[in-house]
């Protein structure tokens, strides 16, 4: 599955490269490649820090804790915690998706993780300064107000429509074929603190 996904993305990148070539010739393609390089160099440290944090979360927080706070029994508390965590966590998709995976592996339910991801997308505090600076206070205020209920709403919807989505997603995680095995064993061996 992971290999297929890599291939699909690689082909999508090539397809976009062809579009770029048609629009602006080789110089456009080259600037896309150098953009990729700059992006990678710029976020290498961030990615390493994010994955180390995700690994620590995985071994630190026992299944019991996650199930209690973010799993089936958590109720509305799980949505609240997921939403606040999403709003507070800094960094791009290579930061919050590994953390979402760590929580999913430890038994968090699907509604909580959807709330977490959508809250990261809509409530994130780290984006607030640039949004205010470029769009102004009024537009930013309106944007935050009208999207205020969206993250828990999406989470609730996920919970209602995909009751067993957590397990289904867990079983289809791309990394379970590789690094996941070790990572998953650690919390089991540790038991409750």
């Amino acid at each position: 599955m992971q290999r297929t996904m890599t291939l699909v993305l690689f082909i999508a990148g090539l397809g976009l490269g062809v579009v770029a070539y048609v629009e602006g010739g080789w110089s456009r393609v080259l600037s896309g490649l150098s953009g990729t390089g700059h992006l990678l160099v710029g976020v290498t440290l961030l990615i390493v820090a994010a994955f180390v944090l995700a690994g620590l979360i995985q071994v630190m927080i026992s299944k019991e804790t996650v199930t209690r706070w973010l799993g089936e029994e958590s109720g509305w508390r799980g949505f609240l915690i997921g939403g606040v965590a999403g709003a507070l966590i800094p960094g791009g998709p290579y930061v919050y998706y590994p953390i979402a995976v760590a929580f999913l592996r430890s038994g968090a339910n699907i509604g909580t993780i959807v709330t977490f991801v959508v809250a990261k997308n809509l409530w994130t505090l780290s984006r607030l300064p640039i949004e205010v600076a470029l769009l102004g206070v009024h537009v930013t205020w309106v944007r935050y107000v009208v999207t205020l209920v969206f993250p828990p709403l999406a989470g609730l919807l996920a919970q209602l429509l995909f009751r067993h989505g957590g397990r289904w997603v867990r079983e289809g995680l791309p990394a379970t074929e590789k690094g996941g095995r070790n990572a998953r064993q650690a919390p089991d061996g540790s038991g409750p603190p």
Partner: peptide, 13 residues
């Protein structure tokens, strides 16, 4: 253990 788990996840991905 946590650092190794995180780096392994990164390596796999």
């Amino acid at each position: 253990a946590g650092t190794v788990a995180g780096l392994k996840m990164l390596w796999g991905m």
